[in-house]
Write a protein that binds this DNA or RNA. Structure first.
Lengths: 157, 157
DNA sequence: CTCGGTGCAAAGCTTTTGCATCCGC
DNA sequence: GCGGATGCAAAAGCTTTGCACCGAG
């Protein structure tokens, strides 16, 4: 899944050019970090990681760049119930939705094409042009190790 | 839709009794305010409204009570893309999901039973017990007055 | 050289917390 | 009266902003 980084760079370059935005080192440092690592992350964690790697990017630039990446469709922003926004790379990954475990906060991905049917019906019925969506199921694992945490999350003090 | 307030009170009373929580004036003041007014609201606005009505409830109590109402299923919490949590009463209202206009931020409700099928399949496939969900479509109106705001939200500086 | 982008730190906003006081039980 | 709940204000956590400096075009 590494060639997606190259593709992401191309997309980002095109986006920046089109918008007459500058192609700064920092923007590509951030894009690379996101596409090199996996999973969901929040802005602060990304900032910490970059700082550890001695990239001198500031929080302001991290937030700014995440905004640009979201605009260009390279990154998707999620709010999984908490107040922190989590981000996730958007290409090299097929369209999917999320299932969040209320006990251990683990995030699982799934995909069901029938959601497309629902979207089409809503678009037609309500006369909207839908550009994106967020579907999150919340629940409890019933067979993994997570079950043990059902009590644990109560005393996470 | 006013008798739902009475029902809500009963449900809340039962919940508080079961959990051995106290039945304070403030908690019912907040519940009433929520069930008397409509639509989606955030904690701060609710606090402001109560303050205007000379109810001496504090922010702390508003947040605390919203938590209890959420626990008891009388209120649902949403994150419609921004950092503010919006709440909405949950009984007297049939199950529904939301469509958010990216131009004017208007929130429209819809309902599609097929989502239940998706939920069932996810539960079965991933072995989860799903307790609730959030489905939000984001898009643009194509025929209401909102269309005019497509440009407006660009210059909201 | 210009001016958009960056770094830093401070401010802003929503939400949470600590502690003295209050009131449901 | 006891101990949970409240009010107030301060603190915490995420995100945005102001300003001086830097570097892409």
């Amino acid at each position: 899944m590494h060639q997606s980084k190259e593709e992401a760079r191309k997309v980002f370059l095109a986006f920046l050019a089109k918008q007459n935005y500058r192609k700064t080192q920092e923007r590509f440092t951030i894009l690379d970090e996101i596409y090199d690592s996996g999973e969901h992350f929040d802005a602060e964690t990304l900032y910490e990681i970059l700082k550890e790697k001695n990239s001198r990017v500031s929080r302001a630039t991290v937030y700014n760049t995440l905004g640009l990446l979201e605009e260009s469709g390279l990154v998707v922003k999620h709010q999984f119930g908490s107040n922190v926004a989590l981000y996730e790379k958007a290409i090299g990954y097929r369209q999917h939705d999320h299932l969040v475990c209320l006990d251990c906060r683990k995030i699982t991905e799934f995909c069901d094409p029938r959601l497309g049917n629902i979207q089409n019906k809503v678009e037609e019925l309500l006369k909207y042009q839908i550009t994106n969506h967020s579907l999150i199921f919340y629940g409890h694992c019933t067979q993994t190790a997570c079950v043990h945490k059902t009590a644990a999350h109560e005393k996470q003090d």
